[in-house]
C-alpha cells in the first residue's frame, strides 16, 4: 500500500488521487464519519433545528496564529473554539461547523495530524459537529504553515434576545475570568522574545458559562474579548450603544505573570487577546446572583463585576484608577510592538 508522504505536497491539493488519499487516510480519520457529508453541501432537516429555537446564527472566521502551538492550545483548538464562541455570544447553541484547511507545501504530516486531533477534541467537548469542509495546498512561502477557516451554525432559543440596543444605564459589566492569558501565552511561545512565561492560554469554549447566564436571565449583551482584548470590547460596547462604560481598573482580574510580561514589554493587559473569556452586560438586579452561579462552575471561578453602563460620556470608556482618578480607555491600535521606553 502506498502511504501518504511525510510532508504535504502541492499535488495533494490538486483534487486528484493524491488528494483523495490525504482526505481518506488523514483528514477524515479525525472527523466523525457519520456526520461528515461528503456531498457538495451538507444538508439539515429544518424541523430538527426548529425544535431548539426560532432563529439561526451563522458566523465565519479564519484563524492564523504564530506560533501554531502555545501553552494551553494550538491553531486547531482555536479554530473550533473561536467560532463556537462567536455563536455563543449571539445566544445560539452551536451545532455545526465547516472546516477549511489551507496548508503550506512541505508542512509535516505529523503536525497536521496533531492539529486535526486537537480540532476533533475541541469539537467534541464543545458539542459541535463538523459537517463539511475543504482542503487546499499553497506553494511554500505563500502562507505561514497552516491557516484554518471555520464557519458555524447554531440555533437561538426563542427566549434569548441579546443585543447592543438593549443596554440600560446602570447595567452591570462583568468579565468571565482573568484577562490577557491568551495574548501572554502567545508572547511566551514566540521564539524572538525568548520569554518563558507561566501562563496558559484561556483557549476554550465559553458555552458552559454562557448557557448558565442565559438560563439565569437578565443578559443584555455578550461578547468574547478576542483580538484587541478587553479594551476593544468595551470600546465597541460604548460606541455601538452610544452609552458610556465605566470600569474600575482594580476590579479587573489580571494574573501577576500577565502583568509582569506587560511591564517588561510595555504592553497593557487590557489590550491583550483572550480566546475563552468574555464580557457580559447584565441587568443590575440580576448580576449578583448571575455571578454567583458563574463562580460555581470551574471555568467561572474568577468571574467578576468590573463596572457599569453610564450616561455620562456616551460612546466612551472611562477607567477609574486605583487612585480615584479617571481616564479614558481608548481602542487599542494595530500590532503590539514591544517597547523599551
Amino acid at each position: 500500500m502506498i502511504s501518504v508522504p511525510e510532508h504535504i505536497t502541492l499535488s495533494q491539493g490538486a483534487g486528484g488521487r493524491d488528494m483523495q488519499r490525504l482526505l481518506d487516510d488523514v483528514i477524515y480519520q479525525y472527523l466523525d464519519p457519520l456526520s461528515l457529508q461528503r456531498d457538495d453541501a451538507a444538508t439539515f432537516a429544518l424541523n430538527s433545528l426548529a425544535q431548539s429555537g426560532d432563529r439561526l446564527a451563522f458566523t465565519t472566521d479564519t484563524y492564523t496564529v504564530s506560533p501554531l502551538r502555545f501553552r494551553g492550545g494550538d491553531i486547531g483548538a482555536l479554530a473550533v473554539n473561536g467560532t463556537v464562541n462567536d455563536l455563543a455570544c449571539s445566544g445560539a447553541i452551536p451545532r455545526f461547523l465547516s472546516l477549511s484547511l489551507i496548508i503550506e507545501e512541505g508542512f509535516a504530516l505529523e503536525e497536521l495530524r496533531f492539529y486535526l486531533q486537537s480540532l476533533q477534541q475541541a469539537a467534541h467537548s464543545a458539542e459541535v459537529t463538523i459537517v463539511t469542509g475543504d482542503t487546499k495546498v499553497m506553494p511554500r512561502g505563500a502562507i505561514d504553515g497552516l491557516v484554518i477557516n471555520t464557519s458555524g451554525l447554531g440555533v437561538i432559543p426563542s427566549d434569548r434576545q441579546p443585543g447592543i440596543d438593549r443596554l440600560k444605564t446602570g447595567d452591570t459589566v462583568i468579565v468571565s475570568g482573568f484577562i490577557g492569558d491568551h495574548g501572554t501565552a502567545i508572547l511566551g511561545a514566540r521564539s524572538d522574545l525568548q520569554l518563558d512565561i507561566d501562563v496558559t492560554s484561556d483557549c476554550k469554549a465559553i458555552t458552559p458559562l454562557t448557557e448558565l447566564l442565559f438560563a439565569h436571565g437578565g443578559v443584555r449583551f455578550v461578547r468574547d474579548a478576542t483580538r484587541g482584548g478587553l479594551a476593544a470590547v468595551l470600546n465597541e460596547i460604548a460606541s455601538s450603544s452610544q452609552q458610556g462604560v465605566r470600569v474600575r481598573e482594580t476590579a479587573i482580574p489580571v494574573r501577576p505573570a500577565v502583568r509582569s510580561t506587560c511591564e517588561l514589554l510595555g504592553f497593557d493587559p487590557l489590550s491583550l487577546a483572550n480566546e475563552g473569556t468574555f464580557v457580559a452586560v447584565l441587568a443590575a438586579d440580576t448580576a449578583g446572583s448571575a455571578l454567583e452561579e458563574l463562580r460555581r462552575h470551574p471555568h467561572g471561578l474568577h468571574a467578576t463585576a468590573i463596572g457599569e453602563i453610564t450616561d455620562r460620556r456616551p460612546g466612551k470608556v472611562e477607567l477609574e484608577s486605583a487612585f480615584g482618578a479617571t481616564r479614558l480607555l481608548d481602542m487599542p491600535r494595530g500590532e503590539l510592538l514591544p517597547r523599551i521606553c
Binding site: P253, V254, E263, A322
Partner: peptide
C-alpha cells in the same frame, strides 16, 4: 463572596510603590 484582587501576588519593588492609601 470575595472579589478578586489583581495584586494577590505582587510584583516586588513595583506594587509597594503603587499603594493607593499611601498615595
Amino acid at each position: 463572596m470575595s472579589t478578586i484582587s489583581n495584586t494577590e501576588e505582587g510584583l516586588r519593588y513595583l506594587d509597594e510603590f503603587r499603594d493607593p492609601a499611601l498615595a
